[in-house]
């Protein structure tokens, strides 16, 4: 196979560097062919705008907006007033990013078509969530009934209260409450989601969160520069029954990593904190589409911060290690 000419290799090299820069600096808000995100999809941007304008806007968006550029202001309005920050790029960096954007095919052409996303009716509530809701409702009804009973007692003529009996009742209630509280503590605390010493997962997935995306990787990501260098998992697929350990951290502010199962309800979560790694150990049982959403407010694009993954039934894993959370109940 013939080697590409030197000029072509240079161009390819620039585009690769541009892609790395794009992944590091731009992908949080933009895609290259994946559709609008927090900012616009940049595929074909050079067909829509002059190269010089694009270069200047990437280089110093704050000054372009402050200068009242009509296109920039229109974009600002269209994308919810979220102003593009000045990423501190050099003119050379900007050229490399533009070269990458000018190159074909865009990311979208290489990636499979995005999954059709349609609004669906509310799913049936999971047993865990329904138990919580109905326990709350039942106790609330009892509370309202007791308050109503006491309020209605004042309708008749005033009467004295046998204080000794009232105190006796209070003692009984206290003992009942104490037993109830102690039982609930004993019953629920052993089920806490924290990783136990000696637990070894079938698979470890590194999760780096940053405003406003989650990056899955086969290797730890400590800085934004690591994203381009690491073995990134573009499309995460897990096997049902597999014990998976998500090692979750953040590259900027605190985020949350909440796993929604095929029933579109929370199955497990942990926080993504800068400077710390939280180990979330889960065993997905149900196959289907999953979604991780940001569960800790992290600024303007918080509600857009999500990443899909799937649990496929092709290769179920027989594991005899201790089971952790993430059963859809």
């Amino acid at each position: 196979m013939l080697a590409a000419p030197a000029w072509a290799q240079d161009a390819q090299s620039e585009a690769d560097e541009g892609r790395a820069l794009f992944d590091e600096k731009c992908v949080v808000c933009h895609t290259n062919g994946g559709g609008d995100h927090i900012g616009p999809d940049l595929a074909g941007v050079l067909d829509r705008r002059p190269r010089e304008w694009v270069a200047r806007f990437i280089l110093e968006p704050d000054r372009v907006i402050a200068g009242g550029d009509s296109v920039a202001l229109e974009l600002l309005k269209k994308y919810n007033g979220i102003e593009m920050p000045n990423a501190g790029l050099s003119a050379e960096d900007v050229e490399e990013i533009i070269d990458y954007l000018a190159g074909t095919p865009g990311a979208a052409a290489q990636a499979p078509p995005p999954r059709a996303r349609e609004a669906q009716p509310p799913p049936e509530m999971l047993l865990a969530q329904a138990s919580i809701l109905y326990t709350f409702l039942a106790i609330s009804v009892i509370i309202v009934a007791v308050f109503t009973f006491v309020a209605l007692s004042t309708r008749g003529p005033a009467a004295s209260v046998d204080i000794a009996r009232a105190y006796q009742l209070r003692r009984v209630l206290f003992v009942i409450a104490l037993i109830l509280v102690a039982s609930l503590l004993v019953a629920t605390m052993p089920q806490s989601p924290y990783a136990r010493a000696g637990t070894t997962a079938d698979r470890v997935v590194y999760v780096a969160a940053r405003q406003y995306e989650f990056v899955f990787s086969e290797e730890p990501i400590v800085t934004a520069e690591d994203i381009a260098r690491s073995r990134r998992i573009a499309s995460l697929e897990l096997a049902p029954g597999e014990l998976v350990e998500f090692r979750v951290t953040s590259l900027d502010v605190t985020h949350g990593f909440g796993i929604y199962g095929p029933e579109r309800q929370l199955l497990a979560q942990t926080q993504a904190m800068p400077g710390y790694v939280n180990r979330l150990i889960v065993r997905p049982e149900r196959t289907g589409p999953y979604l991780a959403l940001c569960m800790e407010y992290c600024a303007g694009g918080h509600h857009l911060m999500s990443v899909p993954f799937t649990v496929e039934s092709a290769t179920p894993v027989a594991s005899h290690r201790p089971t952790s959370s993430l059963t859809a109940n």
Binding site: A128, S140, I143, T188, S192, P193, G256, M295
Partner: peptide
């Protein structure tokens, strides 16, 4: 007082670690 009692029950449920997994920041 009634509202305090009802809201308190919601809070106690949320303060159960195993329930908090499903409720935290919802």
């Amino acid at each position: 007082l009634l509202g305090w009692a009802v809201g308190g029950i919601g809070a106690v449920i949320d303060s159960t670690i195993v329930a908090n997994v499903r409720l935290h920041n919802t």
